[in-house]
Nucleic acid binder design. Structure first.
Lengths: 199, 199
DNA sequence: CCTTATTTACACTAAAAAGTATAAATAATG
DNA sequence: CATTATTTATACTTTTTAGTGTAAATAAGG
């Protein structure tokens, strides 16, 4: 019978340090020595918790994903203009793009996954689930007779395609989007979507 | 007076080898030794042509950009359905996404640019110019009275947002898109666009 | 206060890769 | 053919960093 003590404190400190080191200097250039120093731990302790840099990275990703699961479900409301409700969906994406920490983290993560396909594969296994609830919302709006959509999955993709490109991919690789520009685009995307699918 | 001989042959062999090495193994893991070997040149020769790996990378990018400048202008045609003409614009993006070599190259290039911001900055200086001719086409269509658009620049962005997300970013980071799926999306994008802006 | 799980300091190893030096070999061009 | 610009082979330096070994120090928890 082995006594177990609470290792979580050092472990969390290491993950926290790794998150910032990876964001700051990228996966390859953030050395284990540097991470240990920032975590106020010895390098040996880092390796006692995470047997390799790759394992540490995966833990960092998981830590981040954990934090990001705050299912922002937007329920369909019969007596609110569709425009306003769709705006909220678009706002979800805009919200991510203006969260500097989150964007930097994702930029870093994509960099790693492009550069190290083997790590990417392992990370992707634990990913999945990408439902924003838009399709459910569309189904409700159709049932309520306010939208005419044959294929709500397809319509959902149309909407997210517009938003993702402008509010996610572009800012991700080309830097933050101007706020008023974002507003203009958001309005136009919603208007375009409604032109196609509303009665 | 120094006699100049033709060094372009070796130089091109090196660039060619570097292109494939970078695509195959990524910037960091493609060593100068490996590139030299693939180019059937000595490492010293590689360094005689390109004073550093970074300089070589920039030459590779330039080589690629040079090849990609085949201005596929699509002129406005008064007596052809708008749908068919817009399809061609969408096809431009689909075309890129199904060019495996091109996508692999761009994936690699983005990886480098995310991972090495200093290189990214230098590469970006020589970039610019991203006009696909859609806005000009829209202007013509508006002048011809077949579309009603206040801001053709904005409308152009709406169209490219849809297409870029589905036909570029997603395939770039998540692998090739199914052909029939691409066809479905393309149709829906064009239909959505026309629902918003056609008479 | 004792036991011992956990952490630390520090000195290693091993590997990889960028870039350099130099003298000899090769081949373009007049 | 002769000249010499270019290329080659080879051995080298330097730097960086992942990961390990070990004995001593620390501190959690009963």
């Amino acid at each position: 019978m082995i006594k177990q003590r609470d290792k979580s404190k050092k472990r969390n400190a290491i993950i926290e340090a790794a998150v910032h080191a990876f964001i700051e200097m990228g996966f390859d250039r953030a050395s284990m020595d540097y991470i240990a120093e920032k975590a106020e731990a010895s390098k040996r302790t880092v390796y006692n918790h995470f047997e390799s840099k790759e394992v540490l990275f995966k833990a960092v990703i998981q830590h981040f994903v954990q934090q990001s699961i705050e299912e922002k479900q937007i329920p369909y409301q019969a007596n609110v203009p569709l425009e306003a409700q769709l705006n909220k969906f678009a706002e979800l994406k805009v919200g991510i793009s203006t969260n500097q920490l989150k964007m930097n983290f994702m930029r870093m993560a994509f960099g790693v996954m492009i550069t190290h396909p083997n790590i990417a594969a392992q990370v992707m296994e634990n990913a999945g689930n990408n439902d924003d609830g838009l399709q459910a919302w569309l189904d409700d709006a159709v049932a309520d007779g306010r939208l005419i959509i044959e294929d709500t999955a397809l319509a959902s993709e149309v909407f997210w395609s517009m938003c993702s490109s402008a509010f996610f991919w572009m800012p991700m690789l080309q830097g933050e989007l101007d706020a008023s520009k974002a507003e203009t685009l958001k309005k136009e995307f919603v208007a375009t979507f409604l032109a196609r699918y509303s009665k």
